[in-house]
């Protein structure tokens, strides 16, 4: 079991000694015991850190945000940032390292094990509790999840309450860290790509129907992009509204910006947006599932990313975020790469 007191103690020590400029971790939220991410800068607040199944956020995102923030500052604090990382967060960090977005010295990684379990899906909990507020949610034994409702302790099987991504996860402990808390219990999900395979078993027509229904709901609010630690680009190539137009931007420069897709959430444009995003995440997406969690329309975005994750593994034996030194999936090749699809 992760002893949170150990994490707090280390965070406190790092802050007291001035070794880090802050600690990004989870603290109790204001509503119903759901943890929220927080940047702690004072040593005494390290006591607030928590680690429980409600720590859903991928904190690698905050490393990205902090890095961008620093770039704007004239004299940024050069000390590293400490971050609590779960398995998926750590793999996201690895991708950021691989893409040289950050250097290893810029982060101190406080790795926490997912305790042979994972984080919960709010929708599933809400459904199971019939709308009642959970007072506390914590890791139980054997991967079970303990939910306290009205001082009553209820134990749920992980299958019932964990986020889908956690049920399909094969990396439920960090792959890169400076400190490690808890146990490394290798989990082998019975069918990590069951959902993908199910969809693949549908007829083309049925798949098309499925995706049309999904894509038709997209509002193009870009929450998926905002929450994704891999979507750190200054401008998104597919989205004309993210173009930085400054007073100095000339008419010619504006004319040179390509509108690969229309702004309005037409079905076709939604498709192209999500397709481009999926392709751009190939070999980079670590399936932290944040895109799907934050989607207000509940679009099965993971099902897209998971497909390419499976193909990267099946065709190229590549798993994102496991090796920060290796070249990225699409910036390398093997002589033996499959080509039976080529005429």
């Amino acid at each position: 079991m992760v002893k949170i007191s150990d994490v707090r103690q280390e965070a406190k020590r790092l802050l007291e000694k001035g070794k880090v400029r802050g600690v990004v971790g989870y603290v109790p939220g204001t509503r119903g015991g759901w943890a929220i991410p927080y940047l702690i800068q004072e040593a005494e607040r390290a006591e607030q850190l928590v680690w429980d199944p409600t720590c859903v956020h991928n904190l690698a995102l905050f490393v990205v945000e902090e890095k961008k923030e620093q770039a704007k500052q004239k004299e940024p604090d050069k000390r590293p940032l400490a971050v609590m990382v779960k398995g998926c967060d750590s793999r996201a960090i690895n991708v950021l390292l691989q893409e040289k977005f950050i250097n290893r010295e810029e982060v101190v990684l406080l790795g926490v094990s997912c305790e042979n379990s994972g984080v919960v899906d709010r929708r599933k909990i809400t459904h199971l509790l019939h709308g009642q507020q959970a007072g506390e949610i914590r890791f139980g034994d054997n991967g079970n999840i303990v939910v306290v409702v009205n001082s009553e302790r209820r134990i749920f099987d992980p299958q019932e309450v964990l986020a889908d991504r956690c049920l399909e996860c094969q990396y439920n402990f960090p792959v890169v860290f400076d400190y490690f808390y808890g146990e490394k219990i290798k989990k082998t999900p019975p069918a990590p790509y069951a959902q993908v395979e199910k969809l693949e078993s549908f007829s083309l027509e049925k798949r098309r129907q499925f995706w049309e229904e999904e894509m038709a709901r997209c509002l193009r609010c870009y929450a998926c992009r905002s929450v994704c630690p891999m979507c750190y680009c200054a401008e998104c190539v597919v989205d004309p509204i993210s173009f930085a137009v400054e007073p100095t931007t000339t008419a010619e420069e504006k004319a040179k910006k390509i509108k690969w897709i229309e702004k309005s959430p037409l079905l076709s444009e939604n498709f192209v947006y999500h397709l481009v995003r999926a392709i751009h995440l190939a070999g980079r997406c670590v399936d932290c599932g944040e895109c799907e969690r934050v989607c207000p329309e509940g679009i099965s975005i993971r099902l897209l990313n998971k497909k390419l994750e499976r193909e990267a593994l099946r065709l190229f034996n590549y798993v994102a975020g496991t090796d920060s030194q290796a070249p990225s999936l699409l910036s390398t090749f093997q002589e033996t790469d499959p080509e039976d699809f080529i005429w």
């Binding site: 693949e200 798949r207 995706w211 497909k307």
Partner: peptide, 16 residues
Amino acid sequence: RRRMALLKELLPYLGL
């Protein structure tokens, strides 16, 4: 070849 292999898989998966 690598890039296109992924695209060749992805497009029919979406129903094209």
